[in-house]
Simulated scan of single mutants.
Amino acid sequence: MTVQFAPPRTSDPAVFGRVAVLMGGTSAEREVSLDSGSAVLEALRARGVDAFAVDGIPALIEQIRAGGVDRVFNILHGNKGGGEDGVLQGLLEALGVPYTGSDVLGSALSMDKIRTKQVWLASGLPTPRYVRLAPGSDVHAAARELGLPVFIKPSSEGSSVGVSRVLDDADLDGAVELAARYPGEMLMEQLVVGDELSVPVLASRDGHVALPSTRIVPKGEWYDYHAKYIADDTQYLCPGYEGADEDEIRQLALAAFIAAGCRGWGRVDILRDRASGQFHLLEINTAPGMTSHSLMPKAARQVGIEFEELCWRVLESSLPESTVGDVQP
């Protein structure tokens, strides 16, 4: 399938003004964010953008008060001090500072895995069965309801932080203890055995476009934090599929992105059941990683968009009227 992108809206870096590349912060994903932010900063400067690094939201507020910020390239990851839960977006909206990525609604919703699932299910989109684990919930009863094996995870963390793969009833309590270290609710999710895939979505002048999927083949049994950011033996097959399967997964990713109210750029994570062939939506990342291991740059490269241009196009999405509707892939 051919991916068609309209030309960039501008070739003049001066239109962006002074750009704060917001990275780091205090979330559990700080180190990944710093790596991503450094790469983005270098790419924007290479294209002539007047960009500078800012570590965390308090430092950003100081820069804005000093009058030194015209727009923000948000590469903070996570919640509660990160930049993906809607708090930063609300702040920037109130201050009138343009920024990359989803707005308050899309950011807050996508950061909450439980609420995202509820929206998808209401929209008729497939996602693995799950149980919300309220404080004091009987985790063993929940496991019997879903059937082992399951994943237990914090509802509002990314990058596989706090996630456990539970195969035996005896391991449930330890998994809950790990997930409970992180703020917010927890959920138990049906373990779908099959391929794990990721589909980036990127704004273009003509609307949002789903990039080629990436099928992830970790050396271990599942795609955990180590496989994502540390290991060099994880395989990334892009595109993940060919023909009708690739069309289907990209259409599903775009539908999920739009249903959650997202905009600008993001990455939709999907599982494919090996037995049935059915796709299941997992989550949306509204500020995807941009490290050497990250999936969005890999997919963009497949359609001729190198890293510097990718960063430019993401930054362009913060300009007025940069997206005008949504298009199918």
Rank of each mutant, 00 (worst) to 15 (best):
213 S>H: 04
213 S>I: 09
213 S>Q: 02
214 T>N: 00
215 R>M: 09
215 R>Q: 11
215 R>K: 14
216 I>D: 04
216 I>C: 07
216 I>G: 02
218 P>G: 09
220 G>A: 14
220 G>S: 14
221 E>V: 13
221 E>Q: 15
221 E>K: 14
221 E>C: 10
222 W>I: 07
223 Y>C: 06
223 Y>M: 07
223 Y>A: 06
224 D>K: 11
224 D>S: 09
225 Y>T: 05
227 A>H: 14
227 A>I: 11
229 Y>T: 11
229 Y>S: 13
229 Y>V: 05
230 I>E: 15
231 A>W: 08
232 D>I: 09
232 D>Q: 14
234 T>F: 06
234 T>P: 06
234 T>Y: 03
235 Q>Y: 04
236 Y>C: 03
237 L>C: 08
237 L>M: 08
237 L>N: 04
237 L>G: 00
237 L>A: 06
238 C>E: 04
238 C>G: 01
238 C>W: 04
239 P>C: 01
240 G>A: 12
240 G>M: 02
241 Y>T: 00
242 E>W: 01
242 E>S: 12
243 G>E: 11
243 G>T: 05
243 G>P: 04
244 A>T: 10
244 A>F: 07
244 A>K: 13
245 D>C: 08
245 D>Y: 02
246 E>W: 04
247 D>F: 07
247 D>V: 13
248 E>K: 14
249 I>S: 05
249 I>N: 06
250 R>V: 10
250 R>K: 10
251 Q>K: 12
252 L>S: 10
252 L>G: 07
254 L>I: 10
254 L>M: 14
255 A>I: 00
255 A>R: 15
255 A>W: 02
256 A>H: 02
257 F>E: 00
258 I>E: 11
259 A>M: 06
259 A>P: 04
259 A>W: 03
259 A>K: 04
260 A>G: 11
260 A>V: 00
261 G>I: 02
261 G>C: 05
263 R>P: 00
263 R>L: 11
263 R>D: 11
263 R>H: 14
264 G>L: 11
264 G>A: 14
265 W>T: 13
266 G>E: 07
267 R>W: 06
267 R>N: 06
267 R>E: 09
267 R>Y: 06
268 V>P: 01
268 V>Y: 00
268 V>G: 00
269 D>V: 03
270 I>K: 01
270 I>N: 01
271 L>K: 07
272 R>T: 01
272 R>L: 03
272 R>P: 01
272 R>K: 15
273 D>Y: 06
273 D>A: 12
274 R>N: 13
274 R>L: 12
275 A>V: 13
275 A>Y: 05
276 S>P: 03
277 G>V: 05
277 G>W: 12
277 G>A: 05
278 Q>P: 01
279 F>M: 08
280 H>Q: 15
281 L>S: 08
281 L>F: 05
281 L>Q: 05
282 L>G: 08
282 L>S: 09
283 E>M: 10
283 E>F: 06
285 N>Q: 13
286 T>I: 09
286 T>W: 03
287 A>C: 14
288 P>K: 07
289 G>V: 12
